[in-house]
Amino acid sequence: MSVATSRGLQARKAPWAPLAKRATPYIVCVGGFLIAWQILSVILGEARLPGPINVVVQTWDPYISQPFYDDGGTSKGLGWQILISLQRVAIGYSLSAVVGIAIGGMLGMSRFIGTGFDPVVQVLRTVPPLAWFPISLMVFQDANTSAVFVIFITAIWPIIINTAVGIREIPQDYTNVARVLKLRKGAYIREIVIPATVPYVFTGLRIAVGLAWLAIVAAEMLKADGGIGYFIWDAYNAGGDSSSSQIVLAIIYVGIVGLLLDRLVAFAGRKFSKGAA
């Protein structure tokens, strides 16, 4: 214990160390990565694989410098494209969170339902996101709704599974307390089940947001008006001089946004867990 604490103290002292010293590993490793990328680009030819310098030069105007230009139609800045994608994710992901927690709660509370539906969950959760796309296009007859549905159906499984597991894994210590106090059902759910399950639910939500972001980019490439996935596919089809640079830039944006979403859900999870984890 004492060893761990003293290490913790050292780690917390680190911000006082010179900034340059802390930045060194990032500069060396990221710089090395960029140099390797640039060399590879030179070998392959920059038309096939633009290096980092080409990407910045070729996409500076308008893609980097004007993220929110709007020329009408689907010709919009990357900021708008990402917001379009995020909006779809927000709708599909919120729906999957609400429905997933409710279903997961039922599967966790009732051994009968939990056991009975397990095969369904296990089979459906392995279906790749895009496999849902054709059927949802047929059902909804609308690309935008279908994309939202793909997000929903992709994100829901980890939420269901983790919520159900969280409820089943409530430590016996806590249920023993409930039994000896003769806690009423409502108080048991409010005071024990929910707080004990929140960390599991957020594990599911965190996996789900990553999957949702993966799925939306793929779904938009297939069929959509606008969105970052659409932008990538459109740039590819346009086949202009700077197409590959545009694609690389969009990929970097996709990665950064995905990371931010992940961190956002992790942060919310810590806020809501109240020290139960």
Binding site: V177, P195, S273, A276
Partner: peptide, 10 residues
């Protein structure tokens, strides 16, 4: 209880 069985979020 042997392991206290306190609810950690309270």
């Amino acid at each position: 209880f042997q392991n206290y069985s306190l609810l950690p979020w309270m």
